[in-house]
């Protein structure tokens, strides 16, 4: 079983993590647990409990094709300079904290979906890339 966590918010391209979950739900792939989170901050760590395999999906800005799905190395995620703020406590900070507390799941993948430069509009998610990625992980 893989726990797939889509991270996002209702705003613009930040919805991409949620749209990815909808695509996976439609595809009805077995052995996936789909969880949708709205900017969980440090609360993300709770979702690493009692699970061996986790895939995080979030919108990213990485100068690639808008909607493109890429498997990332979590070490490449930039932590903001805002580490002591609740508002600035994002995915990278949550992963760094989980690593320090030794609570990362045994297998963790992070998939980024390119948001593009215009964060207000939502690019078309490349669903095939997402499904290929899942097939590769499973």
């Amino acid at each position: 079983m893989i726990r797939v966590i889509g991270i996002g918010s209702p705003f613009g391209a930040d919805q991409l993590g949620w749209l990815a979950l909808e695509a996976l739900e439609e595809a009805a792939i077995s052995d996936l647990e789909l969880i949708r989170l709205d900017r969980p901050g440090s609360g993300l760590l709770r979702y690493f409990e009692d699970v061996e395999r986790v895939l995080l999906i979030d919108a990213v800005v990485a100068d690639s094709e808008p909607g493109e799905v890429t498997l990332l190395n979590p070490a490449d995620l930039s932590q903001s300079s805002c580490l002591t703020s609740s508002h600035g406590f994002g995915v990278a900070e949550a992963l760094a904290l989980a690593e320090t507390l030794e609570t990362l799941p045994a297998e963790l993948w992070v998939a980024g979906i390119e948001a593009g430069s215009d964060h207000c509009s939502v690019p078309d998610l490349n669903k095939q890339q997402l499904l290929d990625l899942l097939a590769h992980l499973i």
């Binding site: 918010s9 990485a62 690639s64 490449d76 508002h87």
Partner: peptide, 16 residues
């Protein structure tokens, strides 16, 4: 964990 290429990532900050 795998990475297809080296990239520097910024999670969008506008909404957060």
């Amino acid at each position: 964990m795998t990475s297809k290429r080296e990239i520097h990532i910024n999670v969008p900050v506008l909404t957060r």
